[in-house]
Design a protein around this nucleic acid. Sequence first.
DNA 1: GCCGTTTTCGGCCCGACTGTTTTCAGTCG
Length: 575
Amino acid sequence: MDKKQIADILAEIADLLELNNENAFRVRAYQNAARALEASSISLGPKTTANQLTSIKGIGKSIAEQILALIQEGELDHHQKLIQDTPPGLREMLKIPTLGPKKIHYIYHKLDIDNISELELACQENRLAGLPNFGPKTQANILKGIQSVKKFSESFLYADIFEQAYALLDQIKGHSKVKKADIAGSMRRKKEIIGDVDIVAATKHPEELMDFFVSLDQSAEIIAKGDTKSSMKLDSGINVDIRAVKPHQYPYALHHFTGSKEHNTAMRAMSKKMGIKINEYGLFKNGKRIPCSNEHDFFQVFSMDYIPPELRENHGEIEAAKNGKLPRLVTQEDIKGLFHIHTNFSDGNMTIQKACQHLKEMGMHYAGFSEHSKTAAYAGGLKEESMKDYLSEIEKIQKKLGDFTLFKGIESDILPNGDLDYSDAVLRRFDFVIIAIHSHFNMSQKEMTQRMIKAMQNPHATILAHPSGRILLARDPYQVDIMQIIDAAAENDVDLEINANPHRLDLDWRMTKYARDKKIKVFINPDAHHLQNLHDYTYGVNMARKGWLEAADVANTMTSRQMQKYLDHKKGRKK
DNA sequence: GCCGTTTTCGGCCCGACTGTTTTCAGTCG
């Protein structure tokens, strides 16, 4: 049982306890432990000790013992008992907006309703209205919430929401009474998956702004409207929340609504010890507001460096900011060239020449082309006999483009037994070899991990592509021990990819800090098939930033000349 | 259940909004 599975069980215990009306702090302890475990760099195995576990902040004696039991037994009596005592449908019901654990608990015990279908029927039959604290509106809202769960997933890809969100922001900013406005929340933190959009605005006339907001064309449904806070659903199904504050409150509100919840909680706990209260309206010492004109001032009050929004996940950023140990995060401008590009030699929809021209216009200095390999027949992978044409086309374009460098590569499939699908003689002809899994996803974790490690041991392997294979909101990662993969990458001088396709964003940002500590270089690769995809690298930069990477950690921040040398040396070392 | 710059007990972040009440509970972020 791996770390993620154990963290999921802890989170499930938290849900189940909550549904059983357990002490809220005990519930939170399990939630915190689940997060802390997942974010930790600890490797779980038969040799894991209780001391190692309790050294993680948020994991104490009791939960450490439960984790050890899960490692050794694969299950936990306490957990099993909770599952037995709690109908599975109750947990599903938690997904219904406006319906929380308290109401679910009550409905279950009073009306014996334990799943969404029964609840829907009960609402339609008007059986909820009239219960204490339940009225017709509560019932109608639950019914609406059920429809919403059925119709929309509650999660959206960052890239799918990004443009709508900023278009909306522009309209808010354009309102004559708005002094300042920004996107906050998970979108400002550049999370790969977004639940809703949060907008913070500074104005002296909040009611006018609320009226304006709910009248916008994009609104499909008004969820709530108050004096300073409103919420609406767009046609795409995503919720947008807006919050208006007075101009002098803006920096505090921006910090507050940017979150994460865990970051805010940790900040408040810390500030409370210093006798300072944090809320969205200010920092208060002895009831007196501490003036801040921006977020830099805000952090300075606590003698902290400015924490970029991407890092505000309570993954160690608060301590690092206090000690001057925050990374200087890589930026879009640091990226000098792009690798992992497919053209019409396999399943791409652009010529090599077009791709180069486009990249030059984007200000890039080099490109690494990597067609699919022969096993990827579905993608028109390159057969050995077409190899010559492909390589000579790259050479031809290179001659035309003096100041732009082309690197010759291939994306070679990792076969089920861990071999690559070309011989050494073929692989030797490339400047770099990306290795990747595109088939036989359903292997045991042990087999899959071994398969990938064996492939990384191939002396021609340069970069491991999309290490987990996940497709966000669509396909789970394959069963693989990512930490072992990262360890093997370090041992075998293989770099890791952050695949910047917004559906992948793989390597996961939660793991990049661990890779950085192992001194592994990361390539931010667009995995482009169309000219437009080349711009996706920016999503990869977002992930690198969330994962604490600096420019020096990212390979494609090198100049052309440095990259040429880097790849040559890598080949030389591995001979 | 976790934790300790008021350490082994007694706290544990804070406030807006909704719908239910007639002062508050629940949910959400």
